[in-house]
Design a protein around this nucleic acid. Structure first.
Length: 238
DNA sequence: TTATGGATTAGCT
DNA sequence: GCTAATCCATAAA
């Protein structure tokens, strides 16, 4: 599938077809610049950072072809007092990034197969993070498909690229060795988070996915109706 | 040194 | 809906 054919996809109203997305990156003309988020953005509670990350853009531009995707689903992990957070184990070799300065990548390996990407929040010395659960591809769709090992035969295949924390990490080539502790506020870093003026529409909040402790806390944030959200797309009914 | 279980995914019923 | 795959950090010994 070529980028041009992505036009006309049944994207939700809140989203822009990838081929219409104007950005400033090393290989495309500056039309609507993506500005990196400042460190102060992340120096706040995970709840606020999570909610405000919706609609922002994750960018990988170290290689020849840049990748960009809009953030559509995240979860907040509150630090040492949150039993579901890795920081609950304290400051260890694995979790030290969570206790470091805000705006850094915390990448961990899970279930023997997958990497997951977080960004650290709160001031240095205080743990807290936001897990990236799903993004919507904007640039570099074919490259993401190659990284995922998925043949793109039609629009319906697109969510398989980046819908889920393990999937988006694979699509972006994110690994612990390569990316853990990377500064996500610097465009020179090769992996960073920016904003392009796009505004999130309706936001839905539900309990987090795949955890056993603090399983009912409403700490999962997503764009309502977005096709790239993973798992349950609405709050559970009683 | 060994045991345990996990912030998942893909494939099958 | 169910579960195997697969490895690492942590806890227990």
């Amino acid at each position: 599938m070529r980028l041009a054919r992505v036009e006309g996809l049944p994207y939700p109203d809140s989203c822009i077809p990838a081929s219409d997305f104007p950005v400033t990156l090393s290989t495309s003309p500056p039309v609507r610049p993506i500005r990196p988020l400042e460190r102060a953005f992340f120096d706040r509670s995970p709840r606020r950072v999570a909610r405000e990350l919706l609609g922002k853009v994750l960018v990988r531009d170290g290689g020849r072809l840049p990748l960009a995707a809009r953030i559509v689903e995240v979860e907040a992990y509150l630090g040492e007092a949150d039993p579901a957070a890795h920081a609950a184990a304290g400051n260890t070799a694995r979790t030290s990034v969570l206790f470091g300065p805000p705006g850094r990548a915390y990448v961990y390996f899970i279930y023997g197969n997958h990497y997951c990407l977080n960004v650290s929040c709160e001031r240095e010395g205080k743990a807290g993070s936001v897990l990236f659960r799903a993004v919507e591809p904007l640039l570099g769709i074919e490259k993401m498909a190659r990284a995922r090992g998925i043949p793109l035969q039609g629009p319906r295949d697109l969510p398989k690229l980046t819908s889920g924390p393990g999937r988006l990490a694979e699509a972006f080539g994110i690994t612990r060795t390569r990316d853990n502790s990377r500064d996500l506020t610097s465009p020179n870093s090769g992996l960073w988070i920016g904003e392009d003026g796009w505004r999130a529409g309706n936001i839905q909040i539900t309990p987090r996915i795949g955890i056993s402790k603090a399983a009912n806390e409403p700490l999962r944030y997503m764009l309502a109706g977005n096709a790239f959200v993973s798992g349950r797309k609405t709050p559970a009914r009683d």
